[in-house]
Design a binder for these strands. Structure first.
Lengths: 281, 281
DNA sequence: TTGACTTTTTCATATTGTGAATTTATTTTT
DNA sequence: AAAAATAAATTCACAATATGAAAAAGTCAA
């Protein structure tokens, strides 16, 4: 199987008015519920405050905010510290929210984003993770162009010569990074391949500043690749997204456009899996 | 700050009518919001269903459920699969829920310790707390091994059949212990599950002497788990750390090595949060 | 095309959510 | 110790709005 394109709803059902419609009309929302969610969201961003402060910050009547909080509290979605008289997000919210993860995998979430990335850039889009010191390619959406990059899903590639590998390494914590580098063989595939830990660290520093990694014919002659990291709920790197293609198309004067698209996609995926990009340091 | 236990009112303020009161009165809740949360909770337990099914299961009008879901959807708390026409918990719910963890720095402090523990033992390392008579798993670092234990963060598990649960219970003060045991259902999950308060108390006595708890296939057949308690500044147990894996790897002859690592990790975490292990008694 | 089925929207109605003002409780000041 | 100040919880009267039934709008299967 595999290979359903988006939009082809070749499968059964989907009766009733199709979704998409309502998005435009959408005055079907419940106002009071919407206001309540606003309180909930606000609280999640600014926990540990007393009622009066929350109400004031939101420009809402204390009475209303109070009732919302009390209602949420009876369900455990928020908690009240009766000593400090302040409100927090509750354990139940964590339990319910965590069920989000039970649904789809990284790969599922990434598919539509990869497809959009491919369409926006015209180049093959890839998704990969770190697996025991190598990059494991999980998924890709191929360009329509006749000359194309190709990493079969399931294939492994050394970190030091891969765009995704470098994007992941650049945002890895020091301990893990050191361990991976110590174990790395730094095999030279082309004359551009980075072959020492020092050079690689320098490259990673640049990557971190830029926000994206470049593989400049470091694995395959004639192929360039631009990659950006994807983060999980702990702001730890879990994957990388890239576009790759011949140097003629992935050229210097295209770097800006392409990197923007890749970073955008990586952010979307981070968000789609409930991750949080780390604060800049 | 960190970790004030309930009840210590050493600090200032707390004006207005004290909380506790309203709990009994509590007709201050917003009914429509309460109904909406019910939908949200129901969805979290039974994801991937179409509107009609959800409405029917809840005995609610489809129109109402529809409006609730659409409202939640605009906020990202819920997601709709327009191909399959089914509803899910959304990424935003996960992000908000995860902020529950920000209330204390427990998880932040624990992560590096968990990672080291996983690396030292080769088994999945977990962090959990007691929450209303259940163990709530907060965080984990998975092993690289292909056969692995998996307690997704955010999941709940009964205390009596969990390593972390028993580690926490063993070092809980008598009042709280008695209360938890009285409320416990002692559901039997396997033939090894402890099903009476007496047996559990005996097990806890051993645990206290040993300094660590063992879950010997008491929840899942084939899974063993070794856990140790984490204490706060008042020497009260606030969490537990464990490693868990298949009985083949978490074997008798490994008990020494593993328990040492777990105890070491739990001590590190106790220290990292400014806690003090209780004097032996 | 038609028929069966599900999701949206409409609409009339009463429920119920709302903020202002009041009461109750606690802390701080005098 | 009493009074003033502050903040939380309640009350109340009224309008806003949530609600379910039923109709409409789509989609799928035959």
């Amino acid at each position: 199987m595999e290979f359903q394109k988006d939009g082809t709803s070749r499968t059964r059902k989907a009766r009733g008015r199709p979704r998409d419609w309502h998005d435009k009309t959408a005055q079907n929302t419940i106002k009071s519920l919407d206001r309540a969610i606003e309180v909930f969201e606000h609280l999640s961003e600014a926990q540990g405050k007393p009622l009066s402060v929350i109400a004031e910050e939101m420009g809402q009547s204390p009475a209303t905010v109070y009732r919302v909080l009390v209602t949420l509290e009876t369900r455990g979605l928020v908690e009240f510290d009766s000593v400090e008289q302040v409100w927090f997000i509750g354990a139940r919210a964590f339990v319910i929210g965590a069920r989000f993860l039970r649904r789809t995998s990284l790969v599922d979430r990434a598919r539509p984003i990869l497809r959009k990335l491919m369409e926006a850039t015209g180049e093959t889009a890839n998704l990969g993770i770190e697996k025991e010191g190598d990059v494991l390619f999980l998924s890709q959406v191929e360009t329509h162009a006749n000359i194309r990059a190709f990493f079969p899903p399931g294939s492994l590639s050394p970190m030091h010569s891969s765009g995704i590998g470098k994007a992941v390494l650049a945002f890895m914590d020091d301990d893990r990074l050191t361990r991976v580098l110590d174990a790395a063989a730094f095999e030279a595939f082309t004359e551009h391949t980075i072959t020492t830990a020092e050079d690689l660290r320098a490259d990673l520093d640049q990557t971190r500043v830029r926000g994206f990694a470049i593989d400049n014919e470091e694995k395959n002659v004639g192929m360039r690749c631009i990659a950006a990291p994807v983060f999980d709920m702990n702001s730890e790197v879990v994957a990388g997204i890239s576009v790759s293609g011949p140097i003629s198309r992935v050229a210097q004067d295209q770097a800006d456009r392409l990197s923007r698209a890749v970073i955008d996609a990586s952010r979307q995926l981070t968000q789609a899996i409930g991750g949080i990009a780390p604060a800049l340091s």
